[in-house]
């Protein structure tokens, strides 16, 4: 296998890393905002957030095409204002990955924030901590194990996303072919050697990601608990 084109590997990593970063910021922000608030329509918004998890990927892909397509609501504006077509680019693959992995991040993060002991936060408030400092030093570190779980799931989902990506980013060899797409088309055309190669790569990638994050979180947790003990 000397003549292997590694572009699917590079592209998949790029897409999954960028989409996980976006999902991390969005997911933590919304989960924290919604955690202890109850307002009219909250459950409607939360159900909407969860939708990509239960819809078939082709439906998500079709919905995204309606939004981002050349004649779509957002796609039309991008074309008019910036003369930019987002469909059939690697950015489209990032959008698809963000949409399908957001529910996983949101779910994990909101469960983590909701299970926090509110007394700890209130104690910090009585000592005059600002809301940002409170979030940075109390809330987020305590929610970290849950957020981390969401992070791992989002990365894995982004790496494996296929259906919506195929519709929105298309299959352009060398430009928008992520590993799942390379596997799909290799299997369909009977190139089993190529398919097996990419399957091994993606399994190794997923496995080592989870191993690394587990190790990393354990180390960080230990440091965190030690610091507490030393104080």
């Amino acid at each position: 296998m000397s003549g292997v084109d590694y572009s699917p590997l590079v592209l998949s990593l790029k897409v999954a890393l960028i989409s996980t970063s976006i999902v991390f910021v969005l997911g933590v922000f919304f989960a924290h905002q919604f955690a202890r608030k109850d307002f009219f329509g909250k459950s409607v918004i939360e159900s909407f957030f969860m939708l990509p998890l239960v819809l078939p990927p082709t439906v998500v892909g079709f919905g995204l095409l309606i939004l981002f397509g050349k004649k779509g609501w957002i796609g039309k504006l991008l074309l008019e204002w910036f003369d930019y077509q987002i469909v059939f680019t690697w950015i489209a693959a990032v959008i698809a990955a963000v949409v399908v992995s957001f529910p996983l991040m949101y779910q994990s993060a909101s469960a983590a924030f909701e299970s926090l002991d509110e007394k700890l936060e209130n104690a910090a408030r009585t000592m005059g901590a600002s809301e940002w400092r409170l979030f940075r030093t109390i809330t987020f570190p305590l929610a970290w194990p849950g957020v981390l779980a969401g992070l791992v799931l989002s990365f894995a989902r982004g790496l494996g996303e296929f259906g919506a990506t195929l519709m929105l980013a298309g299959y352009i060899p060398g430009k928008t072919d992520t590993i799942p797409m390379a596997i799909y088309f290799a299997v369909e055309s009977g190139q089993m050697e190529k398919a097996t190669f990419w399957v091994i790569i993606i399994v190794a990638l997923g496995f080592s990601t989870i191993m690394w994050l587990n190790w990393w979180s354990k180390r960080n947790m230990r440091r965190f608990t030690n610091e507490k003990r030393n104080r």
Partner: peptide, 20 residues
């Protein structure tokens, strides 16, 4: 210039929606 569809209906959709 080619965007490759996984079946003929997807090729049709790309043109119908004006993306290709």
């Amino acid at each position: 210039h080619m965007v490759m569809g996984s079946d003929v209906r997807q090729v049709l959709t790309h043109v119908e929606m004006g993306n290709a």
